[in-house]
């Protein structure tokens, strides 16, 4: 097992280096940070623009190979360079990663848990009213883009606030500035954070739920037909026990992999949720940086994504290794 993991790790490291380098080269070749200065009137002095771009390693007049060397040298020391505003990328990356995780975690876990449960239930209740309801609901949710969903929820929440006169729903940012200074002190601040988390969590959970319930339903249907479930029943297990212990558990294995990978995508694709709810996470940063031509940021986020995806791969490898002995034997690798 250890040798297997080590081999994987070496492979993955090579892949991360390759992915990050390609991401940097692509970003550096395609994006034009210089345009940010050229658009302005009066235009900043030519010498200042040159010096600024060179200092940030963003100067398109420096050969790409040299820029890459400078960048790679920094990355080896854990320094992803600076944004075009001159701020260190690494510190901002950690800040934004925290924001993204705090935004996404609850929604992703809740959404996938409900999705798996309801998807499995729909498979068991196949063809019945409950199955149809879940199917229609999740298909509807899948058809609605996240930003539409977010705005719809905001409208409903706003109406609820107006109707009740209570401010149950607030959603801009992680908290209201100064919330902890209220009569309830830090507890009030915590409550305020929770309140701000309600709407984004529901948005993400609904989107995730729709996806997972569809997958889980079809996965479960496959398993239900499988021999081992029939064997379990024949062995004398009750239907419920056979389905839960043997059916659901087996059907869950591919889902853990799926969860690991989609969480990475969720992180990068979080731009709509982040923008709609005034959070400043990684997804928003990536999209804004691409439009600003902020090469070092784009490269850093891509590097993070590569690491994330491969980490997810590693986790799922371990899980597979634990759950499925065939993976561990040399021949199968």
């Amino acid at each position: 097992m250890a040798a297997f993991l080590l081999r994987r790790l070496v492979n993955y490291t090579a892949l991360v280096v390759l992915a990050a380098s390609l991401a940097y080269l692509l970003a550096a070749a395609a994006l034009k940070p210089r345009a940010n200065f050229e658009d302005r009137a009066p235009r900043p002095p030519e010498a200042v623009v040159e010096a600024q771009l060179t200092r940030l390693n963003l100067n398109d007049r420096t050969p790409l190979a040299d820029r890459y060397r400078t960048w790679a040298g920094g990355v080896l020391h854990g320094d992803f360079g600076r944004t075009w505003q001159g701020e260190p990328v690494t510190a901002e990356l950690w800040r934004r990663l925290g924001v993204s995780l705090r935004l996404l975690l609850a929604g992703a876990v809740l959404g996938s848990a409900f999705g798996i449960l309801l998807g499995a239930y729909a498979a068991i209740a196949r063809g019945r009213a409950a199955d149809r309801l879940i199917t229609v609901g999740s298909s509807l949710l899948l058809a609605v883009p996240v930003f539409v969903l977010a705005v719809l929820l905001q409208i409903v929440a706003g109406k609820a606030n107006d109707a009740t006169g209570l401010r149950v729903f607030e959603w801009v940012g992680e908290s209201t500035p100064g919330a902890s200074d209220g009569p309830f002190g830090p507890l009030g601040g915590l409550g305020d954070r929770f309140r701000h988390l309600l709407l984004p969590t529901v948005t993400i959970a609904l989107a995730q739920f729709a996806l997972y319930s569809r997958y889980q339903r079809s996965m479960m249907l496959d398993v239900l037909q499988a021999d081992f479930v029939r064997t379990a029943r024949a062995k004398g297990l009750r239907r419920r026990a056979a389905l839960l212990r043997h059916g659901l558990r087996t059907a869950l294995i591919p889902m853990t992999t799926y969860f690991a990978y989609t969480f990475g995508l969720l992180l990068l694709g979080g731009v709509f949720t982040e923008k709609a709810f005034g959070r400043h996470g990684v997804g928003e940063w990536l999209v804004d940086s691409i439009s600003r031509g902020d090469v070092n940021v784009v490269a850093a986020v891509n590097c993070l994504a590569a690491c994330g995806v491969l980490l997810a791969g590693l986790v799922s490898d371990v899980l597979y290794g634990v759950l499925d002995p065939r993976v561990r034997t040399g021949a199968a690798v």
């Binding site: 905001q154 706003g158 606030n161 005034g278």
Partner: peptide, 20 residues
């Protein structure tokens, strides 16, 4: 004065909900 960074597309909803 509290200045908060919000994407322009998200401002109408924030204004309607009395957050700005």
């Amino acid at each position: 004065i509290v200045y908060r960074t919000i994407d322009p597309a998200a401002m109408p909803a924030a204004f309607a909900n009395n957050e700005i």
